[in-house]
Nucleic acid binder design. Structure first.
Length: 349
DNA sequence: ATCCGGGCGC
DNA sequence: GCGCCCGGAT
């Protein structure tokens, strides 16, 4: 006995489903990788990352043997780099603690670092056909509209109500298809903007369509405050070698590499950089010359706006900068870097 | 130029 | 609850 919602959804899916590289995949390892990539990421953006990642790391052991830095390198540009570090940590855990066998219950899958309720439900249903509904942004949007749920979806209560509803609606005989259908429906038909209610399979049952509430549902509280940061990167060059440092601590881009960074409270105009006391203090024991100062690169993150200037400095004697490494500049390709660094390097290195 | 979407760890 | 990233749409 299947409910009307699931029945309509599966009918829609039959003729509208997307062909995706990880669709119909049965290997839990590959499902895990695809779902981590898809966290906070659109299909179009994750598509090639997935193919390249799986080609280089076809199984757990290849990740284990490669190490965190190479995993980060394959993640470069995708954002939310914690995901890549968690994949490495997860591979170590699965090999060392789980004997390389992917766990096959929801609760055990949930123990993998970086796997929360959404990803655990995805793996449990796709790989093991267990009846756990995935609750992602698509599902929250679709069900808040179809069933007229006004509790904000970015609160615990809103998520709890929709999770309870999804648990009732999910097909117990084919949870995998139900989950994939929900997400495709959200991504293709019941989109955040410019939705196509007139041709929708749910047009005569959907609460939002019947009450013209498409633009008010889902409700969100929306509260992100952004702060400005000012980065001055020291692109210091000596005989075709450059200095790099690894980002550590509780800040953005942890684990990625960048030029030695001078962060300030305020922007500093280009004309004041040439004899700035800070720069003078950096180069007391060597000849140095500013070869080029880049325009301001504006880089926008969720809650930070970074204004970055790259100062290209030529030196003649080596520096002894703490926490930095000196590499041949052509070796930069082996180091994971932020999109901001990548854009500068592409243009100016 | 700005807005928007998208799960997890702490 | 807050901080994490980027590209595409507007």
């Amino acid at each position: 006995m299947i409910n009307a919602f699931a029945s309509t959804l599966l009918k829609w899916y039959d003729t509208h489903k997307r062909e995706l590289p990880w669709r119909n995949e049965t290997d839990p390892y590959k499902i895990w990788i695809s779902e981590i990539i898809l966290q906070q990421t659109r299909v179009a953006q994750g598509w090639n990352y997935y193919l390249r990642f799986i080609e280089r790391f076809p199984n757990l052991q290849t990740i284990y043997d490669a190490g965190e830095q190479e995993v980060l390198k394959y993640w470069q540009g995708l954002g939310y780099y914690t995901r890549a570090r968690n994949i490495y940590a997860g591979a170590v855990y699965l090999i060392e603690t789980c004997k390389g066998i992917f766990p096959n219950t929801y609760d055990e899958i949930l123990k993998i670092k970086g796997v929360g309720s959404y990803t655990a439900a995805a793996i449990a249903s796709f790989a093991f056909h267990l009846p756990y509904p995935v609750i992602d942004g698509n599902v929250l949007r679709v069900l808040s509209r179809s069933h007229g749920i006004y509790d904000p979806i970015d609160t615990a209560l809103g998520k709890k109500k929709i999770t309870a509803l999804a648990n009732k609606l999910i097909s117990k005989t084919n949870p995998s298809i139900f989950n994939q259908a929900m997400m495709d429906f959200g991504a293709i038909q019941c989109t955040p903007q410019q939705l196509q209610c007139e041709h929708c399979y749910f047009s005569n049952s959907c609460y939002a369509n019947l009450h013209c509430e498409q633009n008010t549902l889902p409700v969100k509280i929306h509260k992100t405050k952004t702060k400005n940061r000012f980065f001055f990167y020291l692109h210091i060059e000596k005989d075709n070698h450059i200095y790099l440092q690894k980002r550590i601590g509780k800040d953005i881009w942890k684990g990625l590499y960048e030029f030695p960074l001078w962060e300030t409270e305020e922007h500093i105009a280009e004309k004041h950089l040439y004899n700035h006391p800070y720069l003078l203090s950096c180069f007391v024991d060597t000849d140095w010359k500013i070869k080029h100062i880049s325009p301001v690169f504006k880089h926008v993150l969720t809650h930070q706006i970074i204004s970055a200037v790259f100062i290209h400095i030529i030196i003649t004697k080596p520096l002894h900068l703490p926490q930095t490494i000196l590499i041949d500049k052509t070796d930069i390709v082996n180091y994971p870097v932020s999109r901001l660094m990548e854009k500068y390097l592409t243009e100016y290195l």
